[in-house]
């Protein structure tokens, strides 16, 4: 436990120290939330734009931390032989993964603590079920982290950097986070629905609506990614 706690603390400290991580984790989500809530350019289909945007931006925040930040940081740790060096300390691989998980959860908690008040200030009427939303976030975090680690463990760090940012942009556009998936053309909509981003934002839109119900399809897609991505990462990960 001592090793996991120390490692998790170090991981969080390093994340908060990187300017680009803070921008990705807080700056961009807050900016998108505020801008698109105040400016009527996105056809959200809800009476108050923020009611659509708040759950979508929370989904974006989860994706940026669990996939993009984790993948890029781990990719560079592999390139700098940090992961290799840790391999000859008493810190076990499982402990390292546990620490990284805790660090991701801690950053997500900070994101929620910042984004929810901003959304409420913008007039978001939060209702629905927090436990349902948390369950969706947990499942999505596992899937996104698997994708991040899959890139970090197989690609060069610079390629991971580019790929993770590219994927971030694609999933932002196709993920129902800012633009509703229903606004996408038919074929693209089908692709989008199979991706973890849209599944998470659908789940959060459902969980945080008055009806507090998450479509079964969202659970299925989130669960599939939560299983497939970490397994693929575990089988392909190269530590040095």
């Amino acid at each position: 436990m001592r090793r996991v706690a120390a490692q998790a603390r170090a991981e969080v400290t390093m994340t908060l120290r990187r300017g680009e991580s803070v921008l990705l984790a807080l700056g961009i989500p807050v900016l998108l939330l505020v801008f698109f809530s105040l400016v009527d350019v996105v056809p959200t289909g809800t009476e108050d734009r923020v009611d659509f945007l708040a759950p979508g931006i929370l989904a974006l925040a989860v994706m940026s931390t669990a996939m993009v930040a984790l993948g890029i940081a781990t990719g560079f740790e592999r390139q700098y032989l940090v992961l290799k060096r840790l391999g000859s300390t008493p810190l076990r691989r499982g402990e390292l993964l546990a620490a990284k998980t805790l660090a991701v959860v801690a950053v997500e908690a900070v994101q929620v603590a910042v984004l929810v008040p901003v959304a409420l200030t913008l007039g978001w009427r939060a209702h629905g079920s927090a436990p349902l939303a948390l369950a969706a976030v947990a499942l999505a975090t596992v899937g996104f982290a698997g994708l991040g680690m899959l890139m970090a463990g197989t690609l060069r760090a610079e390629v991971t950097l580019a790929a993770a940012n590219g994927l971030y942009l694609v999933l932002l556009l196709l993920g129902g986070m800012v633009v509703p998936v229903t606004r996408l053309p038919g074929a693209l909509r089908a692709v989008a629905r199979a991706l973890p981003a849209a599944a998470l934002s659908d789940a959060l839109h459902g969980a945080l609506a008055a009806s507090a119900s998450v479509p079964g399809r969202s659970w299925a897609v989130l669960a599939a990614w939560a299983l497939a991505a970490p397994v693929a990462a575990a089988f392909t990960f190269r530590w040095e």
């Binding site: 390093m14 120290r17 560079f76 700098y80 032989l81 940090v82 290799k84 060096r85």
Partner: peptide, 10 residues
């Protein structure tokens, strides 16, 4: 190690 092995920001 012959090179590297340390977090660059530490």
């Amino acid at each position: 190690l012959q090179r590297g092995g340390i977090y660059p920001s530490m």
